[in-house]
């Protein structure tokens, strides 16, 4: 017991980078990162080339072939690999097209979050004092809302559409970025290179954007990746609750909601789109972990 425990004290381990343990661990990490990368590349291919890959038109209904099970189940046909839904649309094609929606929403929403969050975080951290209090207060208020209630009410009021979903997710999700940026800015603003830039009478904007921001970017990148996964899950959740993407647009969350009505007999209708959401979120998270290990070894897995 005790010899093992000594092995596990972190700094002992870090001094022996060539131990078998670490090599094995790196391979494991790399493998997971690779897996994430493969999933993401697959998603990107599906999103960009949906019209080339998808075997059917995602909107084309065929009432004669409705509720077909996937081909790997009894009664399934090779024509519709993942079966068809209640109006005979091809599930595989809808899932492939759904990738597009998910990625568009995920990436755009996170971009909005980053712009608002990082900007506020830089100001709060750099100026401190009243500015900091005011911005931190805003963050606290946003954190006090259960996200889902705020996003749902927002969408209910402004109306569900692709743009509005992106807006709602962007406008509710920025506080995490503010928090991270603020803490890092506070650390950085006392560094020599910032003090030096100040002495040279550089404008505040220049210091913030050219000297501080580039040093925060790695953290933002890592957080941003993970937040894309979160935004995808949240979009699907809003759509699932009927307050997201509207039919007949193929969105994974909405497919899941439609499939829920057939849960007792045609279970795959709910299971498959959910698996797509899960797989893409997992891929993004794995990749995010790998990026974190590459850009910042200090933050490693803690």
């Amino acid at each position: 017991m005790s010899s093992e425990t000594i092995m596990t004290v972190p700094h002992v381990n870090q001094k022996k980078p060539s131990s078998l343990f670490n090599i094995l661990r790196k391979m494991w990490d790399l493998k997971l990162g690779m897996m994430g990368g493969v999933i993401i590349v697959g998603m990107l291919i599906c999103a960009v080339g949906a019209h080339l890959i998808a075997p059917f038109d995602p909107y084309e209904q065929d009432i004669m072939e409705r509720l077909l099970p996937p081909s790997f189940l009894e009664g399934g046909s090779a024509k519709h690999l993942l079966g068809t839904d209640s109006v005979g649309r091809d599930t595989l094609s809808r899932i492939i097209y759904g990738t597009r929606i998910s990625l568009i929403v995920g990436i755009s929403a996170v971009l909005i979050q980053v712009v608002i969050g990082v900007f506020l975080g830089l100001f709060a951290g750099y100026y401190g004092g009243k500015t900091d209090s005011a911005i931190s207060f805003m963050v606290n208020v946003m954190m006090g809302f259960p996200f889902i209630l705020l996003a749902m009410s927002l969408v209910a009021v402004i109306g569900p559409s692709l743009q509005n979903i992106i807006f709602a997710l962007g406008i509710t999700g920025w506080p995490v970025f503010t928090r991270v940026t603020r803490v890092e800015t506070i650390k950085l603003k006392e560094c020599e290179f910032v003090l030096c830039a100040k002495t040279l009478a550089f404008s505040t904007m220049r210091i913030l954007l050219k000297h501080i921001l580039p040093n925060i970017l790695p953290s933002i990148l890592v957080l941003g990746t993970v937040e894309i996964a979160r935004a995808i899950i949240r979009e699907s959740l809003l759509s699932f609750l009927g307050l997201g993407i509207q039919p007949p647009t193929p969105s994974w969350g909405m497919m899941l909601a439609e499939g829920r009505d057939y849960m007792l007999s045609e279970w795959w209708l709910a299971a498959l789109p959910g698996f797509a959401i899960f797989l893409s979120a997992l891929g993004i998270n794995l990749l995010g972990d790998a990026i974190r290990d590459i850009v910042d070894p200090h933050m490693r897995k803690s």
């Binding site: 997971l32 699932f240 899941l256 849960m263 007792l264 279970w267 959910g274 899960f278 998270n285 972990d289």
Partner: peptide
Amino acid sequence: ALVGQAMPLYWFGIMLIIIFGV
């Protein structure tokens, strides 16, 4: 933990229903 974080909560619930309920 990584897998758990990627799992959409409502999908997990529905899968439980399908497996243990249905």
